[in-house]
Write a protein that binds this DNA or RNA. Sequence first.
RNA 1: GGGGUGUUAGCUCAGCUGGUUCAGAGCACCUGCCUUACAAGCAGGGGGUCACUGGUUCGAACCCAGUACGCCCCACCA
Length: 877
Amino acid sequence: MEIPKTYSPQSVEGHWYQAWLDRGFFRSRPNPAKEPYTITMPPPNVTGVLHMGHMLNNTIQDVLIRRARMQGKEALWVPGTDHASIATEAKVVAMLKEQGISKRDITREQFLEHAFAWKDKYGGIILEQLKKLGASCDWERTRFTMEPKLTEAVLKVFVDLYQKGHIYRGIRMVNWDPEGRTAIADDEVIAKEMPMKMFYLRYAVVDPKGDEAEYVTVATSRPETIMADVAVCFNPADDRYQWLRGRKLRIPLFDKEIPAIFDDYVAMDFGTGALKVTPAHDLNDYELGLRHGLPVVDVIHEDGTLTEAAGPYAGLDRFVVRKQIAKDLKAADLLDKIDDYQTSVSTSERTGAVIEPKLSLQWFLKMEPFKERALEAVMSDEVKLNPPKFKNMYRTWMENVRDWCISRQLWWGQRIPAYYLEDGRFVVAETDTQALVEARKLTGNPTLQMDQLRQDDDVLDTWFSSWLWPISVFDGFDDPENADIKYYYPTNDLVTAPEILFFWVARMIIAGQEWRGSVPFKNVYLTGIVRDAQGRKMSKSLGNSPDPLDLIAEFGADAVRTGMLFSSPAGNDLLYDQKLVEQGRNFNNKLWNAFRLLRGWEVAPDAPQSAAARLAGEWFGAKLNQAIAQLDADFAEYRLSDALMTVYKLTWDDFCSTYLELIKPPYGAPIDAATLAEASDFLETLLRVLHPFTPFLTEEIWHLLKPRADREYCCVAPWPTPAPTDAAFLTRFDRALDVVQAVRNQRAAKGLSPNLALPLVAKDGAALAGLEPVVQKLANVSTLTVGDAPAGAVPVVAGGTELALVLPEGSFDAEAERARLNKDIEYTRGFLGSVDKKLSNEKFVANAKPEILEAERKKQADALSKIAQLEAQLAAL
RNA sequence: GGGGUGUUAGCUCAGCUGGUUCAGAGCACCUGCCUUACAAGCAGGGGGUCACUGGUUCGAACCCAGUACGCCCCACCA
């Protein structure tokens, strides 16, 4: 059967993926005889589609899990999706809007119906896409953060925390997202530098006396909130404003009188030193208001429009009002000036809307009870962050963590299990029935009915379910002693983006400690962000993000996987370039062709093994062992790019360029059986170490190669263990390869065909002893003899060996050779000079370590002898 | 504003305790090759004052200080 010249992934990937599934290779069940190795996938948004970030993240996880599986561990990768409360709700709202339905016009139940329909339609697409990448998850264990069991866990945890006194409800200044119409947590706020305007407004002084100024100029970036002002504040030490003590000012346009107050908070050197105080719409002002006993005037609705309190501006959006009010102020001559200035504006991580600080009634989780333990876990490396530079970030965050606002004014999510009585009191319980029991207890009224209880309308923050993920996927809340959780928890590695180190990783650590008494994972591998070749973030609007599925279709999953991994050290951003994927494809093709070469050879059963082939086998076996040891070291430090490069070079340079060239029989000649068997074994081992990176290709070749009967699938073949290597032999072999390269160099320089066999004469046979066949074969040397250089031969010095290459008649140019040798001599003398200088430095000789000193002396001796050699060659010409 | 981190070849990055794995790898580039596994290839080759300045040391890409530029995280100056 003819094997095609190029590997075509499209025709094999689907087949092997199905075969793996059919065989249940990705399934895992607790097995006490084996060591567990577990990864829980960071659940992508249920309605999301695969992007390059997922590709990187999941490729890394698959490499880790596949290697663990081959190492004989009970490897489990749990997949799943996240309900992504605000993001999904926003999508559903948008979809309804297209259909002409407004969320406000439908009931919660109707909305949820639409939402579930949406989720059923688009949910899980992303998991199907991951299969194309080769992700070896146990799909039977796929979980969803809002499925009934996981919701139960969330409610249980809420009640538990409430009973422990860690959850409270209160009016606080929260970050309000007017687009999502919900509160969001501090971490979900992103500060963005934006050009802003600073307005200088005139606040008239009430009853100015004689020579007093008639107004005070106040700088603000938010003129739309002036009607909510309750005071103007000055620094108590500010001499410019002392006369205003006990006085009142008038809000421009509104003529409302407000007091002048004094507080250290105000900076004298910023703006005009006068601050308008708006407690309802600014956190600092709120605190200022508390200190001075000021009222709170709320003028902004949940959707960002102004309330009735705004008078003529009621009903308009805050940004519209900003412009309008500026115009009106100007018209009324109440505006001194407008300056441009740059400041950071808070925006919502999910919707991008500008955040309004807003007072509202929300649920909070205290962080104080958890922070110390969670900090300790990372600082002591109980949870190891990779790269470790993130430890500092984690520490800063944990030390300054504030209470977590866990309620969201949304419908898509887990509804807060708090039930209110008509008198405002409430009970917290996992179920309606339980709530009723509690409520009856609370009120002492045994006839209280369900319809007299009203459940809280809010849902919980998405992270309030995802922080339980490593436990809840094993039903560890439902049944804390079940076999799965006891076996798989704590998990081994978590692979995720640094952006959610606080949102998610830190909180999972807290949850693990709180409910399992131990951290949820041992290692956290933090990936970088995937950017384009110019370093820009991938984004839809830039159109610089390729569709991962198109890439897989064009180049194959293996090529994409290796392309992602070629240059992505942990914590570093990955500058994606299609060239990397092409490099991956080329590499796959190289391996494919190596297999084709082996497959194409005729076997001569009785032929003896050539000396070159025997040496090649001895050498490659050692290289292989060396590489496996290196790989294990790379993996131990999560240096996946380095690990890939190790196998890449092993395959391409060592196996293909050197080993296969050495064992290759003359054209048309058969190969001896022993060599072919050994070569097949080597290839088989190569496939095994490559499999985590390129699972499809290796599985394909594996089956074409038909290895041992007990190793039917590469996917579950054992990961090789390294044997000790003969370092001295490898060093000698390297020297022989240096000679080969030097000879080839001479050929290239002289324009001689590599097919023309030339005689080579070595001055001293010792250095190459035993390796002559290697040099002969690779350098295409006709005869390799020991003796003095014959006339007309080109001197070649390589690997400490002095040789001469006999050129064909007429191609020897004595003048050029002299020039070359002179240049070499000059360089070596310069080198010798620097060594001499060092050795004549008394302080160096006195202080340097003995082995360093010895090395320098050897350098000196070597240089001297090399110069002598070169001079002798020069004389001989 | 505070903290962290980085700057090594055209690009992306290694370089562990200062000294023979000290100046490396992959890609790109240049020169030859359509050689019967592979042109998605083969052979050979050329690229770097290790950001800058000073210091410590017999010796610095590596340690220290400062400067410049970059990135990241945190932060309530209207």
